[in-house]
Design a protein around this nucleic acid. Structure first.
Length: 434
DNA sequence: TCTGGGGTCCTAGGACCC
DNA sequence: TCTGGGGTCCTAGGACCC
């Protein structure tokens, strides 16, 4: 549907109610479910390689620990205050997320899973006070059944439901549920929301807007539409309309297939040898192939990239990438890894200390659509991959792997404080113990 | 000493065609 | 000698999100 049509169609639908359910401090809350001693204690969760802080409990936020801060910089506060530290455990978080989403789907037929810890729900046909009661009920059930605290914001558009959610979290008087339905409430909420907190307005745009003396969401919503279109493109214009209760972003109820799929990692220590880069790229290539197989997709091209540590000013820097086509669309690990290795050999330059490498698959599609005449070995190759996937899911990931993935892996991720996989058996442990 | 990873959408500009 | 212009497709890069 064209953009204009969409606008016209929705112009009259100001009365719709979209709820945004957002899990509070999601990763930290997940760690607490199976370890109740942690309730009330400050917790942080670290990114891969135990590099940055990517989740904090309420108590940790209070100590002044910042989101995205490097672990080593916060170590002082952490040790002084006995903050519990966890390496990220995505198989645990993914599993808890699924439970939350399943529970949500019992409350509305319209659910859009937006991220690991957020979902939009269509909640039309409620009176206001019913809406409030219903949301409090949802909140209670998720807490009771899954053990995760959530905040709920409701508004006539997605962007306003985001703002409502933000208030529900921040202002204690809402007790976790904020409903923005009438003009006066919306105006008040927009005035309370600083411009950089608006969904869709990031660091760059908020700096730009502040130069024009636009500091909060209400000021933004009162600007001239043409000016916004001219200076911020269609994306900015949609945000503007959404703040003015004109819905431009519909609920996406059937998740569409991915267009690209990426696996990349920073190394635990810098590596210099082509051999080690080859091992890492083989591992990532194998993993990314597995990921698209899980979704029934095939890729037609890929991009391989490497970079050195740009934080280290004293060392010479290098980064490069190369795009490669596959002879025909495939999700076969062996073929993808083989091509990826050709790529890494082309962009490798000796004499640098590499910090990170990765592979991105492009041109993804459902695999029967692209079946071609040259594709004679598809069935055999499907069977081999199937067998590998089955064995790996039964006996732990990487039980079977491609030889070039290597065994020693000097570059492998650091994860010193990972919690047990309470809900997903031992797959991750294989990775962690080594 | 130590600084994450995986996505989407939009736009500008080049190549190519008629 | 004179040397168009508009459409489409693709790609790289930027900005944003969690």
């Amino acid at each position: 549907m064209s953009y204009t049509k969409l606008l016209n169609r929705n112009h009259n639908s100001v009365n719709q109610s979209i709820a945004l359910i957002d899990c509070n401090n999601f990763y930290a809350s997940c760690e607490r479910i199976f370890n109740p001693k942690l309730i009330g204690k400050p917790i942080v969760v670290l990114s891969n390689n135990d590099g940055c802080i990517i989740a904090r409990s309420k108590e940790a936020k209070k100590l002044g620990i910042k989101m995205g801060e490097p672990y080593f910089k916060a170590k002082n506060i952490i040790e002084k205050n006995d903050v519990k530290v966890f390496s990220s455990n995505y198989s645990l978080y993914g599993d808890i997320s699924q439970r939350v989403m399943e529970t949500l789907s019992s409350f509305s037929s319209e659910v859009e899973i937006y991220s690991i810890d957020e979902a939009f729900l269509g909640l039309n046909g409620f009176e206001n006070y019913e809406l409030n009661t219903y949301c409090r009920h949802i909140r209670q059930i998720i807490k009771r059944w899954v053990g995760i605290p959530v905040s709920i914001g409701v508004g006539p558009t997605k962007t306003l439901s985001k703002i409502a959610n933000h208030l529900a979290k921040k202002q204690p008087e809402y007790k976790g549920v904020c409903i923005l339905k009438n003009k006066i409430e919306i105006k008040k909420a927009l005035e309370l929301t600083s411009i950089e907190e608006v969904w869709g307005i990031g660091r760059r745009l908020s700096l730009f807007l502040k130069k024009y003396n636009i500091h909060n969401a209400y000021q933004f919503s009162q600007m001239d539409r043409g000016w916004i279109r001219k200076n911020m493109g269609v994306v900015g214009e949609k945000t503007y309309l959404e703040l003015n209760s004109v819905s431009c972003l519909e609920l996406d109820l059937v998740p569409s297939d991915k267009q690209s799929c990426c696996v990349s990692r920073s190394f635990s220590q810098p590596i210099e040898k082509l051999f080690d880069l080859e091992e890492s790229i083989s591992t990532y290539g194998s993993r990314v192939s597995e990921k698209i197989r899980e979704e029934g997709l095939v890729a037609e091209s890929m991009s391989i990239f490497v970079l050195t540590n740009h934080f280290n000013r004293r060392e010479k820097q290098y980064s490069n990438s190369i795009k490669l086509h596959l002879p025909f669309p495939t999700n076969n690990s062996i073929k993808i890894v083989k091509r990826a290795l050709e790529g890494i050999r082309k962009i490798y330059r000796p004499g640098f200390r590499y910090k990170k490498a990765g592979i991105i698959l492009y041109g993804l599609s459902r695999h029967n659509v692209t079946r071609g005449l040259l594709d004679y070995d598809r069935d055999t190759s499907d069977r081999i991959m199937n067998t590998i996937d089955n064995i790996n899911s039964r006996y732990g990931s990487s039980t079977l792997k491609i030889a070039s993935e290597g065994i020693e892996k000097i570059w492998k991720m650091k994860r010193e404080n990972v919690s047990p996989c309470y809900t997903t058996r031992f797959e991750e442990l294989v990775e962690v113990k080594a």
